[in-house]
Design a protein around this nucleic acid. Structure first.
Lengths: 152, 152
DNA sequence: GATCAGCTTGACGTTAACGTAAAGTAGACC
DNA sequence: GGTCTACTTTACGTTAACGTCAAGCTGATC
């Protein structure tokens, strides 16, 4: 249940019409699914990244929230700050009704993110080559040690 | 001079044998090249990522240091912590003379980093698709606005 | 020799992203 | 009705990665 793969469970009960959008979660469930603490999830809400429903005082999360959390954590893995992620996430579903200036601004931000990710791809390629080098040298050293032991 | 491309200047003076490894930098020069502050560079030294020569009290940086700084900043762009970067960087040139246990540990760490980067590649692909979606919707909205204005 | 730019150490400040502890509530079960 | 579990808010603590003075040294230049 670590949510590494993008398998959104679409399993239905027997004859039940359990629409995806009706599935709901407690904060603890969501925390377990994504292997974060409830504190983290509350913090993301405080930062405007999640807006769960309230039933009394307790939070109720829906698919929309789960998807957002997933997107947020993905962004984090890529080194984006919560502020940057919020920029995109907020626009993500507020987009269609913005005025022209808003939309243009969104396109600009998207462009920036795109550039950043392009840079990351480049960085990853370079780093992978460098890791390869280190690994090669490392294996050579090991081989030498093996050989020396053989002669002993 | 923003060091985005990997062009290591190999330009020679007229008849001068100016070996690459003899080129040296002050902290300010290095800071300008990579667009960071001297404070940052001193901090990286304090964290064991750089070990510049000392001439009196002042630091003198060589190619080796420049390469390390470059590697460090690349790591940062990929969201690695300085501690993680140090792990790799230190091993990077200390590797050949380690004992077997050390070398094995290095291989393990390399494996981890490799996995992390694989995950990042996946994340980037997904995020790029999502950005594409947002951009499409955004452009559609703009088109609608254009059209509406045409009819007015 | 004064001034200035660029270096130095030292120390405290700041921000992001949570951790953690305290104290209270609300429903499930025995 | 008591206990347990999982939730809640409030608030202070912590860590990483620097920023920001302050105060002093050092070599070049006017």
């Amino acid at each position: 249940m670590s949510e590494l793969s993008p398998r959104d469970s679409i399993r239905h009960g027997f004859g039940q019409r359990r629409s995806l959008s009706r599935r709901q979660y407690t904060i603890g469930e969501l925390a377990k699914i994504f292997e974060v603490t409830p504190r983290t999830i509350r913090f993301y809400e405080q930062e405007g990244l999640l807006t769960p429903e309230r039933r009394g005082r307790t939070r109720v999360y829906h698919e929309k929230d789960r998807v957002r959390l997933k997107l947020t954590l993905r962004g984090k893995r890529l080194g984006f700050s919560l502020a940057e992620i919020r920029e995109v996430v907020q626009l993500y579903d507020q987009a269609p009704d913005g005025d022209e200036r808003q939309l243009q601004l969104l396109l600009d931000i998207l462009g920036e993110k795109r550039e950043a990710m392009q840079q990351q791809l480049e960085d990853i390629r370079i780093l992978q080559r460098e890791l390869d080098e280190v690994e090669t040298r490392c294996r050579e050293s090991l081989a030498l040690l093996e050989e020396a032991r053989g002669k002993r």
